[in-house]
């Protein structure tokens, strides 16, 4: 069984940016074309400046890559300690709730201003809600929802990613 009440630490995280990542990667065409190659996406807005000019003014990055611009480099000169885990707040919640297993149940994106070469993003990870404990097919656990807000320089909203998780302890 797990406690019904939320740990105070988790309650304090609700509704506010807990993890903030500041402009760690500069978007470049070569980086996003690697992704286009992986999914064989020929959309000319990603590849062709002439096609993009009348629509997006310049080539843009594929929208599915939005979170990628907020992932710190896996290594960088002078960095100490391990890099942040992808979606660090999720792991913090999972650990604080004492739930060893976690999985993403749904991912949602709301897209605003597209990412162009030279852009970078400020990332805010916000814990939106945590469910009461419940019994699931996988074990006893909780659901929680995290919003990740991506803003370009000038505070321009690039998008919001909403991730819904299930954390659980495997049934014996």
């Amino acid at each position: 069984m797990i406690e019904t009440a939320l740990p105070p630490q988790v309650s304090q995280w609700l509704g506010k940016p807990v993890i903030v990542i500041e402009h760690v990667v500069t978007a470049e065409v070569g980086l996003w074309l690697n992704f286009c190659v992986a999914v064989q996406d020929a959309n000319p807005l990603y590849w062709n400046y002439a096609a993009a000019l009348g629509r997006t003014e310049a080539v843009i990055a594929p929208p599915a890559m939005l979170p990628s611009w907020g992932i710190p480099h896996d290594w960088s000169p002078g960095a100490e300690g391990p890099p942040l885990r992808t979606l660090e707040l999720h792991f913090m919640v999972k650990d604080a709730l004492g739930l060893p297993n976690g999985l993403v149940t749904e991912v949602e994106f709301e897209l605003h201003d597209p990412i162009r070469a030279g852009d970078s993003v400020r990332v805010e990870q916000i814990l939106k809600e945590v469910s009461p404990p419940r019994q699931t097919r996988l074990g006893h656990g909780r659901n929680w929802t995290i919003d990740v807000v991506y803003r370009k320089p000038g505070d321009i909203l690039a998008g919001v990613q909403t991730l819904r998780f299930l954390g659980y302890r495997k049934a014996p």
Binding site: A38, P63, A64
Partner: peptide, 13 residues
């Protein structure tokens, strides 16, 4: 992310 990339490509194709 790769799955998302395939869905977006499918729609804009």
């Amino acid at each position: 992310y790769t799955q998302a990339g395939f869905f977006c490509r499918y729609v804009t194709d």
